[in-house]
Design a protein around this nucleic acid. Structure first.
Lengths: 183, 183
DNA sequence: CCGATCATGTAATGTGTTACATGATTGG
DNA sequence: CCAATCATGTAACACATTACATGATCGG
């Protein structure tokens, strides 16, 4: 219901090709909305025919041509309307929580395997946190807010940082709990 | 990829009908995996034909008959195999974060509307936290762990509590940021 | 010359959502 | 008698994922 809107925000921040958008959805935007390039191309095509965005053909020397999409007046209006709608409760899908409860129904070897996997998963999240903190130092040095756009991007990044810190603390709790089970 | 597994865990904890499962997915399991009754019935049927679960017809006086599903040996084996697989990175979909960044492209009135909506959303999360804490007092009084299953259920609940506290703190940050923008 | 990057897509399948559909009992 | 709860499903559609497909240039 909102990939369109995430794309509108991203193109308003910076016009670009489907390929570039796919990369942003792997990096900055992907922190809070994921999408693959296949999804993005399909939705861009629909948004184009609906008049929310327009493409400008950009010839590049030694590169395939690309289409630089930017948001039209209609697209901007669609976004402002959407911003006024209620925020829907998030659909939660936390696989690890299912596995932790499932650990009650496996043997000692299975629990040890889960413990190892949780430790690996924890390392992934530690790396994500490190990336966020590096991005924060790079893009928001000194903690002084620039313009409104930067202030809003920064508060979203702080959300990502807070999320990762919470996850790491919880994973420590999970590890301690798994270690404390009767074997 | 894992609604089946969430259902296996839930049925191992307690056999029950599709209707009952739908309710659990509205309450306890729904904290970390959401599903509607239509999805659940479809998946239950497939799991039944695959031999992961079996139904026992339960006649009830003054109620429609129901099918009490329970997990077979095959189903249990499917679950233990799945527990050994890698945990996939979660697909993040955080609509509010998109809206916050989108707020850079709307006018003062739109930002005020968003502020009001964030406050409402915050109240929802405060209510969820209160429910979790009440559930914790009810199901895990004194903080003394019972058996393994209770210890695992409790650590998952603590994760939900930590998540809600993190969200509330971040929403305060968002509210302060929105109030601090140049108008 | 080979792998990475740039750039765009189609096709098939799987999953999720919304709407529709039925019918009984219990409690107010 | 009416709304809520128990109980089960189908059908249509929307959305997401995975696999397949192409073809150019740049750097080592």
């Amino acid at each position: 219901m909102a990939l369109e809107h995430a794309i509108l925000v991203s193109l308003l921040e910076q016009p670009g090709s489907g390929y570039e958008l796919a990369h942003r959805f792997d990096r900055s935007i992907g922190r809070f909305w994921t999408a693959t390039h296949q999804q993005i191309y399909r939705v861009l095509a629909r948004m184009g025919t609906d008049g929310w965005i327009t493409a400008e053909q950009v010839g590049q020397y030694g590169r395939p041509d690309k289409r630089r999409w930017s948001v039209t007046g209609t697209g901007h209006a669609v976004l402002t309307d959407w911003l006024r709608e209620e925020v829907q409760p998030e659909a939660v899908r936390h696989e690890l929580a299912v596995k932790v409860r499932g650990a009650a129904f496996t043997d000692r070897a299975g629990r040890v395997a889960l413990l190892v996997e949780v430790a690996r998963y924890r390392a992934d999240h530690e790396a994500v946190l490190a990336r966020y903190l590096a991005g924060e130092r790079r893009d928001f040095p000194g903690g002084v807010p620039g313009d409104d756009r930067a202030a809003l991007q920064h508060v979203v990044l702080r959300g990502g940082i807070a999320y990762e810190r919470m996850v790491l603390a919880w994973l420590d709790d999970v590890l301690a709990t798994l270690r404390g089970l009767d074997h």
